[in-house]
């Protein structure tokens, strides 16, 4: 098993836990470029800047679009590394008052991050 740290443009660091090791997956080498993948549904959103919570990956961003469904809502968030889609319950979006132009932090646990060479 490995915990891999990936530098994404704009000084954002992603951390991923993998079953692979540098021996089993030769692409796990320093300075080797990889793609970082995660599902929209795994993106948590908070309005607090320094939330004390065990989620390793966080990026600051601004909501640029909200598509409200009956059950789920799809947020488009502009960040240093580009647009990220977050899907969360319409209930949460309502309770938190999430709307366009709000500044938020997005969070993804390290076990949700897939690396692709």
């Amino acid at each position: 098993m490995s915990v891999v740290s990936v530098q994404v443009d704009g000084n954002v660091e992603f951390i991923s836990v993998l079953l692979d090791t540098p021996e089993s997956a030769p692409y796990l080498k320093k300075d080797r470029s990889v793609k970082v993948l995660f599902k929209e549904m795994e993106v948590a959103v908070t309005t607090q800047k320094d939330l004390d919570i065990s989620i390793e990956n966080r990026i600051a961003g601004k909501i640029v679009d909200v598509e409200k469904g009956v059950l789920l809502s799809r947020l488009t968030i502009e960040t240093k590394i580009g647009q990220i889609i977050a899907i969360l319950s319409t209930l949460s979006a309502g309770q938190m008052g999430l709307a366009e132009k709000m500044n938020v932090m997005i969070m993804v646990k390290m076990n949700e991050i897939i690396l692709a060479p």
């Binding site: 991923s16 993998l18 079953l19 692979d20 997956a25 993948l37 598509e67 409200k68 469904g69 009956v70 059950l71 789920l72 809502s73 799809r74 899907i87 897939i114 690396l115 692709a116 060479p117």
Partner: peptide, 22 residues
């Protein structure tokens, strides 16, 4: 071989449908 994901399968798409925003 192009992802670190270990829970993986290949298959054929049978249906695509919209539900809510997904």
């Amino acid at each position: 071989n192009k992802t670190s994901a270990k829970f993986r399968f290949s298959g054929e798409i049978l249906k695509i449908h919209r539900e809510d925003v997904l």
